[in-house]
Design a protein around this nucleic acid. Structure first.
Length: 383
DNA sequence: TACACGTGGTC
DNA sequence: TGACCAAGTGT
């Protein structure tokens, strides 16, 4: 169901352009947004700015894909250095497709949602094998690839290949739900928002339109205290007309986080090597390296879980707390020093503390090591 | 449809 | 402090 246009917008009869052409609501909105974008576009490493775009320059689909996947549920600031490191190390799709999965997982460490890294590798290999290393151009083709869903497929198709499809991310959900005062709660309202946006997409500049919508949401139409005075669409916005901007988008209530508790073991050999293992490929932190942990349980850790090897374990304080999206985890840490000749048990290995960065520990694991061995995660590898 | 899936920043 | 949020996807 498509919402009616804002009541504050003039009737169509009252609208005419200087050249005598009829101005549609859709056209006026797109023009106002694109004009704003030409002045206020954010400069981003994976983007071709409006000036160069007008000169016919298009962004590299590989970089668009990589950035879009990194940006899923992740801030621009957090992505910045990862994008630079990835593109320096793997400059194109074929180079990336040839990368060992474990190297990609380690390079991704700290960015979160680790299935994205695994799917990135799977996607690159599929593109290399099935498409000769050339990214498909259509959203309905892209959406079949691993790690590429409705948002990412549309964004790549629009931004890299100028396919006029609606691109709906969290920013756009907010902008569109305010523009049309859509009061159905998210995520149920997703399809209504997409279909409301579809006729607004200009056929000639869909990529810039998508980027402009997201920039507007990120910089003007913010979740709290939006800067409506600076918004190029304020006269067309129903939420603004109602002075109820922050009432949109309506969101369904979310569930409380589960509390969980675990014990962890920091085993440090006297030759400055730490005992690590790899987590199972699926599930939380799937495929990432870790310090050995006991079971994650519902009740506080009362006694030491079964350790990976026999050692003079002693409990250290304080505990480490870590908040995941859906789990509030408290970790009790046991530490032990071992002689240099100590062998690693089956499935474990000793990792040089000096080069801990290379181990690719997810943040929660790095926090555990840091609590036991202050400074360990900040050491840089020697040249 | 609803839930699993990370992390860091903001108010 | 704790709740919310940030360019979502897979199951």
């Amino acid at each position: 169901m498509i919402q009616s246009r804002p009541a504050s917008f003039p009737s169509e009869e009252g609208l005419s352009l200087e050249n005598g052409r009829e101005a549609s609501f859709e056209g006026v909105l797109a023009q106002a947004l694109l004009a704003w974008y030409e002045r206020h576009a954010r400069t981003l490493p994976w983007r071709i700015g409006p000036k160069w775009r007008r000169a016919g320059v298009k962004p590299d689909p590989y970089r668009v894909w990589l950035s879009e996947v990194m940006l899923q549920q992740t801030t621009v600031k957090a992505v910045g250095e990862y994008f630079a490191a990835f593109t320096a190390r793997w400059p194109d799709m074929m180079a990336f497709a040839a990368a060992p999965e474990e190297e990609v997982m380690a390079a991704w460490a700290g960015l979160g949602y680790y299935s994205r890294a695994r799917n990135l590798v799977a996607c690159a290999r599929r593109v290399a094998e099935d498409y000769g290393g050339v990214m498909p151009r259509k959203a309905d083709e892209l959406v079949k690839l691993p790690g590429i869903g409705p948002y990412t497929s549309a964004s790549i198709a629009a931004i890299a290949f100028d396919e006029p499809v609606p691109v709906v991310d969290g920013n756009v959900e907010r902008v569109v739900s305010r523009l049309f005062a859509i009061d159905r709660p998210l995520p149920q309202a997703k399809s209504e928002i997409r279909e409301t946006l579809r006729p607004l997409v200009p056929q000639d500049r869909p990529g810039e339109f998508a980027e402009a919508m997201m920039d507007l949401g990120a910089t003007i139409c913010s979740p709290k205290r939006p800067a409506c005075a600076l918004c190029p669409l304020n006269m067309m916005c129903r939420a603004h007309g109602e002075q109820r901007e922050e009432a949109y988008p309506v969101k369904a209530p979310k569930r409380a986080k589960a509390k969980k508790f675990a014990g962890a073991f920091v085993a440090l050999r006297d030759d400055q090597k730490i005992l690590l293992s790899r987590r199972p490929p699926k599930g939380l932190l799937g495929g990432m390296s870790e310090v050995p942990t006991g079971p994650w349980q519902e009740s506080p850790v009362a006694r030491m879980p079964a350790p990976p090897l026999s050692a003079p374990w002693r409990k250290i304080t304080p505990q480490v707390s870590h908040i995941f999206t859906h789990i509030d985890l408290k970790v009790t840490i046991w530490q032990a020093a071992l002689p240099p000749e100590t062998p690693a048990p089956e499935g474990f290995w000793w990792h040089d503390l000096e080069n801990l960065k290379d181990a690719g520990l997810p943040t929660v694991m790095a926090k555990i090591v840091e609590a036991a061995i202050p400074g360990a995660t900040k050491a840089r590898a020697k040249r």
